[in-house]
């Protein structure tokens, strides 16, 4: 039995601790936020926050998440109380298929925590450089993150 805490709720899961976290989040805990993409740490679609740091959940073993706090897209905000990034992605219409969106938002969430002031376009591009989008929404994603940063600063 593993006990992991996700989005402020603690759950017991009967799974091999070596199982990649993404499968536990998606299949055992029925969370949709983290997406399974490359499973090789190349695309970023599976990104979650572990103790506030962006982590590729396809690479982290579920056992390593024990005793730490995992936050997924669902835990970041809700339609009633959206995180500034979620609101900004809607405002900028920063998605096409939206499969990469989770990774973009979760990676950007760490960026906004780390650098609140004077965030530049170059900062955003650098922070997201290992998050892939095949639909070509990168320009919109950059605009959305900058918008969220302004919102958060305000």
């Amino acid at each position: 039995m593993l006990r992991i805490s996700v989005n402020g709720r603690s759950s017991e899961v009967d799974v091999d601790p070596a199982t990649p976290l993404v499968y536990v989040l998606r299949n055992d805990l029925a969370l949709n936020g983290p997406k399974l993409g490359c499973a090789r740490s190349q695309c970023g679609a599976c990104t979650v926050l572990v103790d506030g740091r962006a982590v590729r959940s396809c690479q982290m073993r579920a056992g390593e998440a024990e005793g730490r706090e995992v936050t997924t897209l669902e835990g970041l905000g809700t339609p009633a109380r959206p995180h500034p990034l979620q609101a900004a992605f809607i405002a900028e219409q920063a998605a096409q298929c939206g499969y990469c969106t989770n990774g973009m938002i979760m990676q950007a969430a760490q960026l906004l925590q780390d650098k609140r002031e004077g965030l530049t376009e170059a900062d955003v591009r650098e922070a997201l450089d290992h998050n892939l989008c095949r639909c070509g929404t990168q320009p919109r994603v950059v605009r959305a993150v900058l918008r969220a940063a302004r919102q958060q600063g305000a």
Binding site: L31, N32, G33, T72, L73, E74, G77, T78, P79, P82, L85, Q86, F89, I90, Q93, A94, A95, G98, T101, N102, I105
Partner: peptide, 9 residues
């Protein structure tokens, strides 16, 4: 469809 995608629905 975008709201559902940014909230992980």
């Amino acid at each position: 469809d975008i709201p559902a995608k940014v909230f992980g629905q």
